[in-house]
Design a protein around this nucleic acid. Structure first.
Lengths: 204, 204
DNA sequence: TTGACAACAGAACGCTCGTTCTTTAGGATG
DNA sequence: CATCCTAAAGAACGAGCGTTCTGTTGTCAA
């Protein structure tokens, strides 16, 4: 069959296959099932052997257990390969084989799901900050922000993305494009949230 | 406490709060725990009430059950609200209450997981394209690309991110920064992949 | 050919989990 | 003031779960 070479040195080759099956299952169901179900997933008949496999995958760093004993995937379980900027000459371009840093996009960008909102960016008022029309802003909802943060404020009932600054004791909103004016709100400034990430998708 | 207004019309307001707690828990543990643990998560003492809540969340489309009865999150569970750029006057700032588009970051950026790699961007040679030092490029590995695509090419055993162009029948790599020269590779040009997305994280 | 070991299979068991049923408290309604 | 509904609390129970122990099979080496 096909070879799965995601195995770490400390896990034996068969376990890599079991891991792949578990990853596929998790992609479908977003959960790790009971030992009984895992027997079917792995194609074996013994619960005790399932446990042995999971114990090894835990040792290899792909699984963890919650305080109440439930199996959960680790970061390494989801990890996407993060390539390094330089590759040695002659090396085949199998980025996935390299260990090292990995990461998960959702987790990287979002700390508190319930407070995070995505807002599409309109216009080019922040283009000098590398924020383009059509990008998606990852915004964490909160009232307070620091000087220099890029914030989503509500001005004239519209969301606007600007850098927060202070001028003569007054908060102002500074665009990153000379074609746009600085916004000096009279009275209070209503801050919706703080920009914590940015996503851009290129048409393919 | 704070209000989380992620509720759909068909679920009562308290459930939105429970959903938020469950989403935050899931973000931490990547699993839905037992009813006993959910009591602590929700801050209530009765397992039967936990079940009632989960049943309602299932009806509302946030949860499902596997064939063997295990609770699992649905797509809607992960979907992040996508705000619209204008909000009506006087409306409380409940962006999430708007139905309409939702999306999942990972799914949006990555079409074919097995061919997708993340590469951190070094340097500012593409800054005019809004690609900054420290950004993470989402790259789909493939050999061919079209003129105008931003590609990851291998030049002098280093990854380089440039726009692919053609000049007098020859492929060239065009930076998006006047301080950098156009790269005119002699002989063949080795393309690693095509830029399909971009991720940026702001320090918080 | 025999012994050791790895890779499972199968059974036994106690305990936790999900389910269901009953009870309670508070607010709204009439 | 009685009643209804919602939002829970609490108990009772049986099935299924994870754990552990023992049994079986195949393979390789000495």
């Amino acid at each position: 069959m096909t070879d799965f070479d995601n195995a770490t040195p400390e896990s034996n080759p068969k376990d890599a296959e079991y891991l792949a099956k578990l990853q596929d299952y998790y992609a479908d169901w977003k959960s790790i099932p009971s030992y009984a179900s895992l027997c079917e997933v792995f194609g074996i008949a013994s619960k005790s052997w399932v446990k042995a496999i999971l114990d090894r995958l835990e040792k290899a760093g792909y699984l963890e257990r919650t305080p109440d004993g439930m199996w959960i995937p680790t970061k390494q379980f989801f990890a996407r390969p993060l390539a390094e900027s330089s590759v040695p000459a002659g090396m085949p371009i199998t980025v996935s084989a390299t260990q090292g840093e990995h990461f998960v996009i959702d987790e990287m960008l979002i700390d508190t799901p319930s407070k995070t909102t995505l807002i599409p960016v309109k216009g080019d008022s922040m283009i000098d900050a590398g924020i383009h029309d059509g990008d998606v802003a990852v915004v964490e909802k909160r009232m307070n922000a620091n000087i220099g943060d890029i914030v989503v404020a509500i001005v004239d009932n519209e969301f606007t993305l600007k850098t927060l600054d202070k001028e003569r004791g007054q908060f102002i909103l500074r665009p990153a494009n000379q074609a746009y004016p600085v916004i000096r709100p009279q009275g209070s400034l209503e801050i919706f949230g703080v920009l914590t990430g940015l996503i851009r998708k290129y048409r393919r």
